[in-house]
Amino acid sequence: MFQVKNLHVTVEKQKILKDLTQDFSVPAGKFFVLFGPNGCGKSTLFRASMGFSKYKVKGEILLDGKKINGLDIDKRVKEGLVYMYQTPPILKGVKFENIVKESIGKEKFWQEHSKDVDILDARKFLQRDINVGFSGGEVKRSELLSISMLPDIKVFLFDEPDSGIDLDNLKNIGEYMTALLKKRKAMGIIVTHSGDILKYIDAYKGAVMYRGEIGCVGDPLELLDCIKKKGYSECVSCKGKQI
């Protein structure tokens, strides 16, 4: 469903991903978990896949077998790929309800998403400027609500949805993401450092990324255990032999 082949990504003349080939596909409703230390290229993989302008790409990004390189970001969303930011920008003067109005419309939003609003406790921030003064939990819940409105999504990219949030939010967000994938019959790829969110999601497969390469692929809970015991570098060098 989602894979990259011979992917090279350069950001401001710095090579971040070098000849990365990996199939991230997992069954609908399940998650592929991507581990890796800071700066190893996990977010770069996501942002390059979405088509952000700073990321210069060579190789292939394939969604359902279709090459999506070169498409504008919004066109990739229409193809079925969406990205949940770890740290989204603030949009002064733009309220969540403005986005609703300009996209699916208020009536449809309340008909189809009032339950999401309640689950994500979103009423508090619908009329505030997007991400301005939001708490860590509000940022994540706002992101989830906005991507839940997008139709025909096949692959959700979740960039550290468990960073900077408390335990209540962690449970709420993890369970919501799981329900979202099941409802939409879509798959997810999630980047996590702590792995705390794994208890709330159906983590099917995992991989460790290190210095722009995939070092180890296997059961995500076993990978996490290995990382906690031996660190990322050891996990990469073992190439999965100990899992």
Partner: peptide, 20 residues
């Protein structure tokens, strides 16, 4: 680009930001 990830094309995203 943030608004493009929410499905808006470039021109619509720019217009939303200007109105904001």
């Amino acid at each position: 680009e943030y608004l493009q990830t929410k499905g808006f094309n470039y021109d619509d995203a720019e217009e939303i930001i200007v109105k904001g």
